[in-house]
């Protein structure tokens, strides 16, 4: 078959048509992908809306290097809301198989003073296979408006002492530990850095 014959053949037509369609589709998708791109900021905004329950203007709080880690874990990010409350993303260590749990902690502030925990929810985890055993009641144990109790470390030794939590998440004590550490990590930062307008 000569080149000219090939140009007239059916195979050639098939290839041309398919390539054209593929190029048009690909180009269209590339353009739309640019137009409909969701930026990181938008993603954060959406995540915050989901956790906080409503749209809220926020600023990202800069964390000093030495305050990033404490004995409970690591502070990942802090968002200060316009209404005075804070959202803290903290990772607790010492979970099952030395894994971790990262939690969102919403801390309520009144006139610059810490007032209690509004909500706690899981962001992600590492190696914690029994997370399905955790129910809503478990997380609600942390939600507390008793400022003195919370700030003075009500949850600091829950893993050993408080039967309340052990009963709710029976069978996943190691993961409970990591969850406690995540909440405590956030509380530690609040006590040291945020409470009373420090």
């Amino acid at each position: 078959m000569t080149f000219k014959e090939f140009l007239k053949s059916k195979t050639f037509k098939c290839i041309i048509v398919l390539t054209t369609i593929a190029l048009v589709c690909g180009g269209l998708l590339a353009i739309l992908n640019d137009v409909l791109y969701i930026s990181e900021e938008e993603k954060t905004q959406k995540a915050i809306k989901k956790i906080y329950g409503k749209d809220m203007e926020y600023t990202v709080v800069q964390i000093d290097e030495q305050d990033k880690t404490n004995k409970y874990g690591q502070i990942e990010a802090i968002y200060a809301f316009k209404d005075g409350n804070y959202l803290i993303q903290a990772t607790g260590i010492d979970g099952y198989q030395s894994g971790t749990i990262t939690a969102w902690v919403v801390a309520e502030f009144k006139d610059g003073k810490f007032n209690g925990l509004n909500s706690v929810s899981e962001a992600s985890n590492e190696k914690q296979t029994l997370m399905s055993k955790f129910n809503k009641d478990f997380v609600n144990v942390y939600v507390n408006k008793d400022r003195e109790g919370v700030i003075n470390g009500k949850y600091f030794n829950l893993y050993d002492s408080d039967k309340e939590i052990g009963n709710i998440s029976s069978g996943a004590t190691k993961s409970t530990n990591a969850y406690n550490n995540a909440v405590n990590c956030a509380l530690y930062y609040i006590r040291e850095k945020l409470d009373g307008g420090k």
């Binding site: 059916k10 037509k13 098939c14 048509v17 398919l18 369609i21 593929a22 589709c25 269209l28 998708l29 739309l32 992908n33 409909l36």
Partner: peptide, 24 residues
């Protein structure tokens, strides 16, 4: 325009593009 021999891949291409668009 689409030859009979390659109609199925062509249709799948068109449908997949539309699905990707609605996904975005």
């Amino acid at each position: 325009v689409i030859p009979d021999e390659v109609r199925i891949p062509a249709y799948v291409l068109i449908i997949a593009t539309l699905v990707t668009i609605i996904r975005m």
